[in-house]
Simulated scan of single mutants.
Amino acid sequence: MLIAKNIKKNYGNLQVLKGIDLEISQGEIISIVGASGAGKTTLLQILGTLDRADSGEVFLDNINYNSLKDKELARFRNEKISFIFQFHNLMPEFTALENVCIPAWIGGKKNTEITQKAEEILTMLGLKDRIKHFPSQLSGGEQQRVAVARALINSPAVIFADEPSGNLDSKNAEELHQMFFELRKQFNQTFVIITHNEQLANMADRKLVMQDGQIILNSDGI
């Protein structure tokens, strides 16, 4: 489903990625761990179309998106890829419902259908009574669940998450981790997650350990 071949990336004279090969199947939950500077975020950004590799190829659903032009890539990203970050990045002037709808509105989808879908997702994530609340009226855990709902709205092929529970307390972090697996069970959703949370890393189907721009271990989770 997602295939990376010999991905290399330099920033000036610094070689950040040194030839990454990776295959991820539909419905897999992959964790990526490693020390700061190992290349985790750079790899995630290239896989997620936020940056381009200097060389190599990345395929998602048989489309080599490293060769797409900027406008094509933006459309492809909106349709196929979503993100969850450490900080929820919600728009403060919009309600929870509106925040979830934004990616679909950008993609030109019909407002009535999207609003209904957003309400269904928020309800499924336990936020039925918070739909019309603004981010400032939500707890940290609730805000991150809104961010998860936003990531789901376009039914992406893959969701990339960069330290998604890094800003949450242990209870909300554990609930978020369990949510990923429930979403996989319900939608066969694929997740690629950078994390320093050892529990989440070991829960994944596979744990990739990065060091000095390379994957040095590719192991099954517990």
Results as ranks from 00 to 15, higher is better:
residue 173 A to S: 15
residue 200 L to R: 03
residue 184 R to L: 07
residue 181 F to D: 04
residue 198 E to C: 05
residue 164 P to D: 02
residue 156 P to W: 04
residue 192 V to F: 10
residue 193 I to G: 04
residue 202 N to R: 14
residue 195 T to R: 07
residue 160 F to M: 12
residue 192 V to G: 05
residue 177 H to W: 02
residue 177 H to N: 15
residue 189 Q to D: 13
residue 154 N to E: 02
residue 152 L to W: 03
residue 161 A to Y: 03
residue 197 N to Y: 00
residue 191 F to L: 10
residue 180 F to Q: 00
residue 167 N to F: 00
residue 167 N to T: 00
residue 170 S to L: 09
residue 157 A to E: 14
residue 201 A to P: 14
residue 196 H to W: 09
residue 181 F to N: 10
residue 158 V to R: 02
residue 172 N to A: 10
residue 166 G to C: 03
residue 166 G to N: 03
residue 159 I to R: 12
residue 196 H to F: 08
residue 179 M to E: 02
residue 198 E to W: 04
residue 157 A to M: 04
residue 156 P to R: 06
residue 174 E to Q: 15
residue 174 E to I: 10
residue 174 E to Y: 10
residue 199 Q to P: 06
residue 188 N to I: 14
residue 161 A to R: 11
residue 161 A to Q: 11
residue 180 F to H: 01
residue 192 V to Y: 02
residue 171 K to V: 09
residue 169 D to T: 12
residue 174 E to N: 13
residue 163 E to G: 06
residue 196 H to P: 15
residue 151 A to D: 13
residue 201 A to M: 11
residue 162 D to Y: 01
residue 176 L to F: 01
residue 170 S to I: 14
residue 159 I to F: 10
residue 190 T to Q: 06
residue 197 N to I: 03
residue 191 F to D: 04
residue 182 E to Q: 15
residue 166 G to V: 03
residue 198 E to A: 13
residue 166 G to F: 00
residue 160 F to E: 10
residue 193 I to S: 03
residue 183 L to A: 00
residue 186 Q to E: 15
residue 194 I to Q: 03
residue 182 E to K: 15
residue 165 S to P: 12
residue 193 I to T: 08
residue 196 H to N: 08
residue 159 I to S: 13
residue 200 L to E: 03
residue 175 E to M: 11
residue 170 S to H: 09
residue 192 V to L: 09
residue 166 G to Y: 00
residue 187 F to I: 09
residue 193 I to K: 02
residue 185 K to M: 08
residue 186 Q to P: 08
residue 184 R to C: 08
residue 155 S to F: 09
